[in-house]
């Protein structure tokens, strides 16, 4: 990971702490792929060898999948892997890249993800209040932890956005990306 020595001290701390959290979240949640594989493998064996499909594999699969990609979103951001079209972007000087990024983070990213987080918080808290259970399978598992993934993802994305915003602001002012 970049050390961002060029950033002034308080900002450097903020960026480092945020990036570290995002990286660790990715390193933690990426392992959800293992239970995802195992659930389905067990289901296939149970269905074809023991002739006794599970009641939980269907719900478990989408719950793990949904949590996996959502909770990985901040990690994907810190690794700069949310797909962009860079045929113009990459040819611009860092100052322009920074200006464009900083403006779009401020005017587009924070409002959008902020509203997403707020609505997601409401969505999940209603589910907690109702102790909502899933009805798409006979298992009827609690849905509220799964729905909580939405505001958590939103909060992580906002946090990572702060770090990206600082980096792009630096590039906009200094004409080079922080290193």
């Amino acid at each position: 990971m970049t050390s961002y020595q060029s950033l002034p001290l308080p900002l450097r701390r903020v960026v480092r702490v945020i990036d570290t959290i995002s990286v660790w979240s990715g390193k933690l949640f990426c392992w959800l792929i293992i239970p995802m594989v195992l659930c389905l493998v067990y289901e296939v064996f149970a269905r074809y060898l023991f002739d006794a499909p599970t009641v939980w594999a269907y719900d478990a699969t989408y719950m793990i999948y949904g949590s996996h990609f959502m909770l990985g979103a901040a990690f994907t951001s810190v690794r700069q892997a949310h797909v962009r079209t860079d045929f113009l972007y990459q040819n611009w000087p860092p100052r322009w890249q920074g200006i464009v990024d900083a403006t779009l983070y401020a005017c587009l990213y924070f409002p959008a993800i902020g509203l997403f987080t707020w609505a997601g918080y409401d969505f999940a808290s209603v589910s907690w209040e109702q102790r909502e259970v899933g009805i798409t399978g006979p298992w009827a598992p609690p849905l509220y932890p799964f729905k909580t993934v939405i505001p958590v993802t939103g909060a992580m994305l906002i946090m990572q956005g702060v770090s990206e915003f600082i980096k792009s602001l630096y590039a906009a002012i200094k004409g080079e990306w922080p290193s």
């Binding site: 989408y62 999948y65 949590s67 969505f123």
Partner: peptide, 23 residues
Amino acid sequence: VFYLMVLHAFQVMSEPLFAAVPL
């Protein structure tokens, strides 16, 4: 429409077909 965004996120999260992508 703020809420619509959450409903769509939840819909993709609940789609077992897409689980084939990470697998």
